[in-house]
Design a protein around this nucleic acid. Sequence first.
RNA 1: GGUCCCAUCGUCUAGUGGUUAGGACGCCGGCCUCUCACGCCGGAAACCGGGGUUCAAGUCCCCGUGGGACUACCA
Length: 466
Amino acid sequence: MKKIRTRFAPSPTGYLHIGGARTALFNWLYTRHHGGEFILRIEDTDQQRSTDESTKAILDAMTWLGLNWDEGPYFQAQRVELHREMVQKLIKEGKAYYCTCTPEELEEKRKQALATGKKPKYDGMCRDKNLKKTSGSVVRFRSEQTGSTVVEDLIKGQIVFNNEELDDLIIERSDGYPTYNFAVVIDDALMNITHVIRGDDHVNNTPRQILMYQALGFDVPQFAHVPMILGSDKTRLSKRHGATSVMAYKEMGYLPEALVNYLVRLGWAHGDQEIFSQKDLIELFDLDAVGKSPAVFNPEKLLWLNAYYIKESSPERLREEMKSLWPAGINTDDTDFTQKVIADLQPRVKTLAELADMADFYFADEIKYEEQAAKKFLTADVSPYLKALIETILSVQNFSKKVLEEFLMNFTKEKNIKFKIIAQPLRVALTGKTVSPGIDEIMVTLGKERVYRRLQKAINYIEKQN
RNA sequence: GGUCCCAUCGUCUAGUGGUUAGGACGCCGGCCUCUCACGCCGGAAACCGGGGUUCAAGUCCCCGUGGGACUACCA
C-alpha cells in the first residue's frame, strides 16, 4: 500500500485562524494515525496579499499547537517555473489556450448574464481562436463540456457534477503566475499527495481539479472535505464572532491542548468521550468518524476545556506558560513562591490571563482593600480577634497547611467562636477581597512574614476608621 | 439566479430499522463549605415539515423548508 501523504496549504494573507487550524489538525491526525507524512506548503502565488509576517505567524501557530510537519514549508511562488512548464504542456496538447478577454469585458458579460438569469460562466470567446501569447493575455484550461465528473469524497460520499456546469477557468494570469486551482493540482500531484483534506468550501473546485489531473495524466488523490466552522449566527466564522486567530487564544491564556481538544470535537466524535490527549487522538482519529454538517463555534465549551487542562497541569508547567502573561510590575523571580501562587489559583480559573489577574494580591507589597469588603468586614468588633491572632501567629513554627489548620481551629476554640466569624475579615485582611482561595492556602503561600504584615495593616486600618 | 453541501436539546454530538433518544458545554436546583471555584447529586431542554418504503423510521427514499458554500486574472 502506498504511503499516505497529506498537506496543509494555507495562504499567507493573515494569521492562522480557527478554521484553518482545525483543517491542519485533521490532516495531521489522519497522517499520524496512519503513519504517513504531513507536508506544509505555503500558497503564496497571490503576490499582492502574501506577506512574510503571515507565513511566520502561521508557522508559529502550528508549532504552538504541536502540529509538526515532515516536509516543507514549501513555497508555491518558488515553483512557478514548474507550473509554467505544465501550462505549456497543456497548450501544446491543445488542452489549454490563450485568452485575450479583458477583466472589464468579462465583468460586463457576467453582470449581463446574471441580469438575464443566465449562468455567469465564461462564454468561450477565445476557446477556438488559437491565439498567441500577448501582453495581458491569460491561459485558460479547456474543460470538458459534456459528461460528468464524480468526486468520491471520504466524508461526503459520492458527489456528481455535470461537466457543462464547469467553464474554462484561468490557470495562468496575465502576470505569469498560476492561479490557485491550477497550482494546487500541480503541487499536490508532484508532491505525491495521496489525501487532500480541506474545507468544504472547496467542493465546487474539485471536479475542475480532477479534470486537470486527468488532462495532465496524474493520479487523482482521495478527497475529504470537512465541514465549515460557523459563528453563533450560523454564518462562516469571522472576526465579527470574536477572536479567530489561534495565537490570540495563546495570548488570552489558553493552553494548546485545550484548543486542540476543542477543535477536534467540532465535527469529530468518539462515542461519549470528551477529553482526548494528543496520544488518544492519534490512536483514535480517522476520517470515517468525521461528520458532514457544519459546526457552530462555542467559546463557552472551549473555556471549560481550558479550565480542565489548567487544573490538570503541574504548577511548574503553568509557570512556563504564564511567563508572557504577567502584568507589568509583578515580580515572579521567586519561582517557588510563584508556583505556590499558581497552585492556589489554578483550580479556580478558566484562563491563565484570569490567573494572572487574580494573583495580584499575592505579589503586592501594599494590598489595597476593596471598598465594600473593608467596610463590611474590617470592623471594630473583629479587631480584638485580629490582635489576638497576630500575637500568637509568630509562634507558629512551620507554616504548613496542616499546622495552620490546627492553629486556626485551636484559636477559634479558645475564643469560643465559629470560624465563620473571622474567616471573611481575615480574608479581606490578607487579600483585600471577599473572594479568594482558602484562608489556610493563602497563609501558607504568603508565608509568615507577609501574613504578619497584612494583619498589622488591617489592625491599623480599623483603628484609623474609628 | 445556477451548482453543490448540510439538517438530533440553545451549542458540540452519540445513534447506522425495534432506545424511557445517551453524553458534554451552558442554564436551573441541591450537597460540600471560611468566600469563590472545583467536585458530587438532580432537573428543564432535541429527532425541521410532508409524503412514501416497512410489521416497525431519528435512522432508508422523494418533495418541500431552512441554513451554508461556491459561482474572481483570491486561496
